[in-house]
Design a protein around this nucleic acid. Structure first.
Length: 656
RNA sequence: GCUAGCGUAGCUCAAUUGGCAGAGCGGCUGAUUUGUAAUCAGCAGGUUGUGGGUUCAAGUCCCUCCGCUAGCUCCA
């Protein structure tokens, strides 16, 4: 006897062996027809999955109304695509074909390159397979028979996967649909009919098992939805999101440029972008002073030997600009990071425990030779400036210092209204040998960081083994760009390595009058100005809050007759510290407003005959429109207040 | 770096099968003197990313290099 608990609280009893679909059938034929999968005791399974013979079990039947079915459907869509590719090409070996956010992919090994021009014929074949509507059937096989089956199918990659990846499994599962059989954990739809609308999106290379030393496969990306409207909605959202792209807006709003004559991945900050950066620099600088940091300046190059001692030169040799060889044999490296210079300052005199924590800060420009395929706008570049600082402290001070860094990063993100981030606590991969330092120290550091982080309100905090730097664990603040790629912004990193005797041998004299080794924290709340501002452009869709806007106010004269009053208004705005210009062209006021709107200028001051006579201005706000006429002093006070509070723009603007 | 795609005026894009390189915006000049998202007219603007090849003829086809885009790998 089996008792099945359904989500509505009802209980059904079965004395025979039943599948999820049989339960649906018992409730009603309509539900049976709509059932795409099931959640059985908290696990998503196929509708054809058997329930236990006896006992009590929770069951949820999933239809297209349940979010979980979308993933199941997309996985089936991946199988349909693989089946179509097998029909159309000779000698195809299947690799992996999982679902991803908003879609799916499948990796294929085949000689003939697939290009986007081939998509229509693959899509047509997929449509044919969906129309044929053959069911997906689950087959379980013991491992030796499974290996033989894959051999017979000519699927060597699957043979390898069963032998290595699945070496602990006694039986493995396959899914069959017509002539197509694929090693697969599932679950799948009962049949392909629920794949209402799909589209192939792109093809790209991908390495077998993500290992660049392995052979490269062809990865086909697709998206699938229950309805055509859903698909269209998705494609539209993607288009909309691309309008926020910082590379597009950066060009449109003249914030920055990149030119091959200067070099790939090297940012030229245009006046307007530079203004945003100056504001952010001022903002963080003030915070640094408040929190006891001491600014320093150090050069952008240093002797190679310095980086040999730090370990960065040997460890990252191929992602650095090669050393500069001098005639006298000296070699200099364009610095890939700032810490060795700050360490040199620390070492310049004996330090006492009374001096700690010592916090040395610098907006340090560094250069790294990133692979050409990695470069991307301002988010991945070859030259960038970190809002860097290094804290030298005692082991006892470490937790509080680390926490302070996390808090500063949080406060920075909150100030600009970036709430949609996650925090990744990056620990070492215990199975890898790429880390320096002894495991006991690592364990201690990781435990301590974990305690600090878990004692704070950090959104979506997750521990990710294998993401640590080679010298220590870290906490990274991660945000997604307009097309969903994640980027690390702020970071706080613990370092027991560089201060150690094997590296720079840093010391301080403790209360016991004995030398001790300090702990180092590397931290950068923005990460780099380039990447942070790139993300900020997308976050605000180019419409910056008043305190950051490169041009804050524009005076628009109704006709050139009012130019002299306009100039006076402009002068007074600038005298009040506002970034203001005036538009005195012989255009109609509507055209001037439109231009200012498109340049995303927060405030426009319209002045004509009435304003000139009454010494007032007509204030227009970019989002809310005409705010009415007021004395200039009142407008200036309003702007000053908005700047002082770093007020954020209202969300939900329909126009931009 | 690897796989696929792309590169035409300052910007966004067009150019049929290989057959006279074009439009809008922007710029400049002139007219207009304007009241809350585009006033009108005229003019200028190009070795079609680079170098080579095929052809009577190349923006279009082939090769090299450079750059960009998506993905993979990497990311101190």
């Amino acid at each position: 006897m089996l008792e099945v608990n359904l989500p509505d609280g009802s209980v059904m009893q079965f004395s025979r062996r039943v599948r999820a679909i049989d339960v649906a059938e018992a409730i009603g034929p309509g539900l049976a027809k709509a059932t795409l999968a099931a959640e059985l005791a908290g696990r998503i399974v196929g509708a054809d999955s058997y329930l236990p013979d006896e006992g009590t079990v929770d069951l949820r039947l999933l239809t297209r109304k349940d979010a979980e079915s979308l993933g199941v459907m997309r996985h089936s869509a991946a199988h349909v695509m693989a089946r179509a590719v097998l029909r159309l090409y000779e000698g195809v070996e299947l690799a992996f074909g999982p679902t991803v956010e908003n879609g799916f992919y499948y990796d294929f090994a085949l000689e003939e390159p697939i290009s986007e021009a081939d998509f229509p014929k693959i899509e047509a074949e997929m449509a044919r397979i969906i129309k044929e509507n053959e069911p997906f059937e689950r087959i379980e096989e013991p491992r030796d028979r499974a290996i033989q089956l894959c051999r017979d199918l000519g699927q060597q990659l699957k043979v390898e996967h069963i032998e290595q990846g699945l070496r602990d499994e006694q039986t493995v599962s396959f899914y069959r649909q017509g002539e197509f059989i694929d090693l697969c954990r599932g679950p799948h739809l009962p049949g392909p009919a629920a794949i209402g609308a799909f589209k192939l999106l792109s093809v790209a290379g991908a390495y077998w098992k993500g290992d660049a030393s392995q052979r490269q496969l062809q990865r086909l990306y697709g998206t699938a939805w229950f309805s055509k409207q859903d698909l269209e909605g998705y494609l539209k959202r993607v288009e909309e999101a691309k309008r926020r792209d910082h590379r597009v807006l950066g060009k449109q709003l003249e914030l920055f440029m990149i030119d091959p004559d200067v070099g790939s991945g090297l940012i030229l900050w245009l006046p307007k972008g530079a203004m945003i950066r100056r504001e952010l620099e001022g903002f963080i600088y003030q915070k640094l002073i408040e929190h006891g940091y001491q600014p320093v300046y150090t050069p952008v190059i240093g002797r190679v030997q310095l980086y040999q001692v730090s370990g960065h030169y040997p460890y990252y040799a191929d992602s650095q600009f090669p050393p500069i060889d001098m005639a006298d044999g000296d070699r200099y490296l364009l610095r890939p990071m700032n810490c060795p210079h700050h360490i040199t300052i620390y070492r310049s005199k004996p330090r006492s425990y009374r001096d700690l924590p010592l916090r040395l800060a610098e907006f340090g420009t560094v250069h790294r030779f990133e692979q050409s395929g990695e470069l991307s706008g301002m988010t991945r570049v070859r030259g960038f400036t970190q809002d860097d600082a290094h804290i030298f402290c005692t082991e006892e001070q470490m937790a509080a210092e680390f926490r302070g860094c996390l808090e500063m990063t949080q406060s920075v993100l909150a100030t600009v209204g970036l709430h949609n981030y996650r925090v990744r606590l990056s620990f070492r991969d215990p199975h890898s040998d790429k880390y320096v330092g002894d495991p006991a120290t690592w364990d201690r550091a990781e435990a301590s960081l974990r305690q600090v982080c878990e004692g704070m309100e950090l959104p979506n905090l997750e521990i990710e083994p294998g993401e640590a730097a080679f010298y220590g664990p870290k906490a990274d603040f991660i945000v997604a760009d307009c097309i969903g790629r994640e980027w690390q912004l702020g970071t706080v990193q613990l370092d027991y390595n560089l201060p150690s005797a094997e590296r720079f041998g840093l010391e301080y004299i403790g209360p016991d009058n004995q030398p001790h080794c300090p702990v180092m924290i590397h931290r950068a709340p923005f990460g780099s100005f380039e990447r942070f501002i790139g993300m900020l452009i997308e976050h605000f869709a180019g419409a910056f809050p008043l305190w950051l806007a490169p041009e804050q106010v524009r005076v628009l004269v109704v006709s050139q007759k009012f130019e002299s009053y306009g100039l006076e208004v402009e002068r007074q705005l600038r005298a009040a510290g506002l970034r203001a210009t005036g538009d005195y062209r012989s255009e109609k006021i509507g055209a001037k407003i439109r231009d200012a709107q498109m340049e995303m200028i927060p405030y426009m001051l319209v002045v004509g005959g009435r304003e000139t006579a009454s010494r007032t201005v007509a204030v227009r706000e970019r989002r809310r429109g005409d705010l009415g006429v007021m004395p200039l002093d009142q407008a200036i006070a309003r702007f000053a207040q908005e700047i002082a509070t770093k007020a954020l723009p209202d969300p939900g603007d329909s126009r931009n």
